[in-house]
């Protein structure tokens, strides 16, 4: 049976970064003890601060169910999706900071522009193959190589936790970063897309997949359990094999025989 006990109350001490780059020279921390329910998330602890001691605390959130990816922050040194992480899983003291590798707008809210700018350099949008019938759904039987080749990892919510956690992004801000590469792979292996090779070349450059040192931080911090590292490794392998595949003419899938929905 589900939990039927009445909720206990937790009293964590929450320390949050306050920073307005327009007026402050450096960030400071403000700390308060708050009361939250036993199953409260870290986001709930921020709401407790907001309705009490820090009504003008700036932070981002939208869906609060782990789907929009707006509320990732660094909690006690590690990236967390704050709506999906319980206070009690962290402990009695929480130190909450904004994501790393991104400029701070105010307090805990970062500007995701560099993250999405890197993403936009990877040809991230789907471009359909001209030879496919737009009135039909592409047949993808589960026993066919095309299906097996798809990037079957959980859906990415572009929360930027991986971008924040990646050492290589810190060292080289021009690096495309884990999320953009992971998503690029999903389109590179999508048999419906027409620009797969172009995209593969684009993301297997020095500031793309080759920059990854396989440290795996991105996987460690991903709230969805995705391994961008694994996707990047696949990109690297495909990039090495691409010239051979071109010689043998196997760079594109053959059109499936029956393609009716």
């Amino acid at each position: 049976m589900a939990v039927l006990i009445s909720e206990r109350v937790l009293k964590p001490t929450v320390s949050v970064q306050r920073f307005d780059p327009q007026t402050d020279t450096k960030p400071r921390f403000e700390s308060h003890a708050v009361e939250v329910a036993e199953r409260a998330s870290i986001l709930d602890a921020l709401f407790a601060l907001q309705r009490g001691p820090i009504p003008d605390l700036a932070f981002r959130f939208s869906c609060r169910v782990g789907m929009c990816g707006s509320c990732a922050m660094v909690v006690n040194g590690r990236e967390q999706l704050t709506c999906s992480t319980l206070v009690k899983s962290i402990g009695p003291t929480l130190k909450i900071e904004p994501l790393r590798n991104l400029p701070v707008v105010r307090d805990l809210a970062v500007d995701l522009a560099p993250f999405f700018a890197a993403y936009q350099k990877t040809l991230p949008h789907f471009t359909p193959r001209a030879d496919l019938d737009p009135k039909e759904f592409y047949r993808l039987p589960h026993d066919r190589p095309e299906w097996k080749a798809l990037n079957h990892q959980p859906q990415c919510i572009d929360c930027a936790a991986c971008y924040s956690g990646c050492t290589l992004v810190t060292l080289r801000p021009r690096y495309t970063g884990p999320m953009a590469l992971h998503r690029a792979l999903s389109l590179i292996v999508d048999p419906r897309d027409s620009r797969r090779e172009e995209r593969l070349q684009l993301v297997s450059q020095e500031d793309g997949a080759l920059r990854c040192h396989t440290l795996g931080n991105c996987h460690d911090v991903c709230p969805r359990g995705i391994s961008p590292t694994q996707s990047i490794e696949r990109i690297k392998r495909m990039a090495i094999l691409a010239p051979f595949r071109r010689w043998f003419g196997r760079s594109r899938p053959s059109k499936p025989a029956a393609n009716a929905a």
Binding site: P128, E136, F137, P141, H142, R144, R192, D193, P256, A261
Partner: peptide, 20 residues
Amino acid sequence: VRELENKIGCLFDRAPDGRV
């Protein structure tokens, strides 16, 4: 829904036989 799949790029779930 076909536009979402074929122009915008959503990949909706397939049954084992490959149909949507």
